[in-house]
């Protein structure tokens, strides 16, 4: 760890935190700007004006926007994200709870994708004529072409018609695979490319000439070297996965951040919306920071840009 790298890291982290805060603030403002608020549901149920006024007062919706925003910002600095009007609970607890569910899903997807993608990538990169590689290439091309919506729907259909996977709400297999399979394919293709680059590099050719057995060459030397570019990708993957996938979570009814954000938007739950936005922004920026750092470690030139 040299000083430049540390400085770079600090700068990225500070600006990322600022970003996350700005995003949350914009979400708060945008949601408040849109007409309607959390009490429209009460109006719907025929509540008396007094009841609605009481509820608005309780939620602080009767105060001018500037005051609301100030109160929200003050709470935010204390780590208090306000209370959700839909769930009647502190936003922070709610977001953390759902973030945990998303993290479980993202973690599993990442693990599955890595376990499938990287070894297959090494095989098809190093031995393109091997039958595994021949099988992998078209398959991964097909999987890469599956959009999240399409993947989630196709898996749901498969699960429902065969009964191989549970489709009950809360079952993790379908959403995890919907996220993992395209990712596995992406990682495979990336890893294969990286291995191809490394295998043809002079030092590996020299090593092969020295009589190091080919399988050792591939699995130890080549894969270790080729892992470096792949590592850089993980940051971005982590950021996007842990932020919660809207399509996958909504279609497969996974109670994660994406789903929570969807519900919060629908219920005009101002504090919850900004809480979700904050969580999403934190994940994304954290992912970006990790990606930048990994890239910076791999390639010192990257420190200069951005």
């Amino acid at each position: 760890m040299n000083l430049a790298l540390v400085r770079f890291a600090l700068r990225r982290i500070v600006s990322a935190a600022a970003f996350a805060l700005i995003v949350a603030a914009s979400a708060f403002t945008l949601t408040r700007l849109a007409p309607g608020d959390a009490t429209t549901e009460l109006v719907a149920s025929g509540a008396r004006p007094e009841v609605i006024a009481r509820e608005r007062a309780r939620l602080g919706l009767d105060r001018p926007f500037s005051q609301q925003a100030l109160a929200w910002a003050r709470g935010m600095l204390r780590g208090d994200l306000g209370e959700s009007s839909m769930f009647g609970r502190p936003v922070r607890a709610l977001v953390l709870e759902r973030a945990a569910a998303t993290a479980r899903l993202a973690g599993l997807a990442l693990l599955v994708a890595t376990l499938i993608g990287l070894p297959l990538g090494v095989i098809s990169g190093a031995t393109p004529r091997h039958w595994v590689a021949r099988l992998t290439a078209p398959l991964s091309l097909a999987l890469v072409s599956i959009l999240p919506v399409v993947g989630a729907l196709a898996l749901l259909l498969l699960a429902a018609s065969t009964g191989w996977l549970s489709i009950e709400p809360g079952a993790i297999a379908v959403p995890a695979l919907a996220l993992a399979l395209p990712l596995a394919a992406s990682l495979e293709r990336l890893q294969a490319q990286a291995v191809r680059d490394v295998v043809s590099a002079p030092d590996l050719v020299a090593a092969a000439a020295r009589g190091i057995p080919p399988h050792r060459l591939i699995w130890v030397h080549a894969s270790r070297q080729s892992l470096r570019p792949v590592l850089g990708v993980y940051g971005v993957v982590i950021g996007s996965l842990f932020g919660g996938s809207f399509a996958v979570e909504v279609i497969t009814a996974w109670p994660g951040l994406g789903r929570l954000m969807y519900d919060a938007l629908r219920g005009r739950d101002v504090f919850l919306v900004s809480g979700c936005a904050l969580a999403g922004a934190v994940c994304l920026t954290a992912g970006n920071v990790i990606a930048d750092l990994l890239r910076a470690i791999v390639d010192p030139r990257a420190r200069e840009t951005s």
Binding site: V23, M261, A281
Partner: peptide
């Protein structure tokens, strides 16, 4: 890039 387009 980070601003979720959903809000927009």
């Amino acid at each position: 890039l980070v601003l979720p387009a959903v809000y927009l």
